[in-house]
Amino acid sequence: MNKQQKGTAAGAAGGALIGAAVSKGSIWGILAGAAVGGLAGNLIGKKMDQQARELTQAVPTAEVNRVGEGINMTFDASLAFQINSAEISESYKKDLNAAASVFKSYEDTNILIEGHTDDTGSDAYNMALSEKRAKAVRDYLIAQGVDGSRLTAKWYGETQPKYPNDEANRAKNRRVELAIYANDEMVDAAKKGEL
């Protein structure tokens, strides 16, 4: 193997180990685990930079961050859903429509959709609510023309707060997060230098 191939292999192996250690399949773990490394990772990163810029412009109410070779996009669920509801609000539909138009331009990425709640209510109720919200977002994106085979929905209830569940921050934990990462076709193209 040449240096580039060794770097790519090391990056992929290291990313998988970090991904497994960071979290059990959550956004950060998926993004760390999807790392390819080397020149291929650099090419993927450039394409993700462009997609992140487009998502930031299309959906100014969402938080869009580049993480490794992927993108973490967080929607404020307090704007997206009524309390105790998985029905998507009209304003959130506009955001999802804008995001879907960007996603359709990047067919060589996969999207993990995660639902999260705050700690109000029982564990079982919150787990069910986060499942309904994640699936509602997935189904809505499919209805907007995003290929369903690219989308995976997961839910964690109140088990992965980003902020303290206190009066000032509780609402921030009611969120839907997306991880956007390279699919196998993009990885293969990057490894061949064709991206």
Rank of each mutant, 00 (worst) to 15 (best):
Asn84Asp: 14
Phe75Pro: 15
Asp123Lys: 09
Lys132Glu: 14
Gly70Lys: 07
Lys46Gln: 12
Ala40Pro: 11
Asn126Val: 03
Gly145Tyr: 00
Asn110Ile: 12
Ala40Ser: 02
Ala124Leu: 06
Thr109Ser: 02
Leu151Asn: 02
Asn169Tyr: 03
Gly37Tyr: 01
Phe81Val: 10
Asn97Arg: 11
Arg170Pro: 07
Gly41Ile: 01
Asp108Met: 06
Gln144Thr: 04
Arg150Pro: 02
Lys135Asp: 12
Tyr140Asn: 02
Lys47Gln: 15
Ala32Phe: 03
Leu96Arg: 14
Glu107Gln: 12
Gln144His: 01
Asp49Thr: 15
Gln160Ala: 06
Ala32Ile: 06
Asp76Phe: 14
Ser78Pro: 13
Arg150Glu: 07
Lys154Glu: 12
Gly121Tyr: 04
Gly145Asp: 04
Ala134Tyr: 05
Thr74Ser: 10
Lys172Thr: 03
Ser149Pro: 10
His116Met: 08
Ala136His: 05
Lys94Gln: 14
Ala98His: 10
Met73Ile: 14
Gly115Thr: 04
Val146Arg: 00
Tyr92Arg: 14
Ala168Trp: 02
Asp108Trp: 05
Ala168Glu: 07
Ser78Tyr: 08
Thr61Asp: 15
Met48Ser: 09
Pro164Lys: 05
Val64Phe: 06
Ser122Pro: 10
Gly121Trp: 02
Lys162Leu: 14
Val64Gly: 06
Gly41Phe: 04
Gly41Lys: 07
Gln57Asn: 15
Pro164Ala: 01
Arg150Ile: 09
Lys132Met: 11
Asp123Glu: 15
Gln57Ile: 15
Gly41Leu: 01
Val137Trp: 05
Thr109His: 04
Thr120Gly: 15
Trp155Leu: 04
Lys162Gly: 13
Arg138Gly: 04
Ser101Tyr: 10
Thr152Val: 03
Gly29Lys: 06
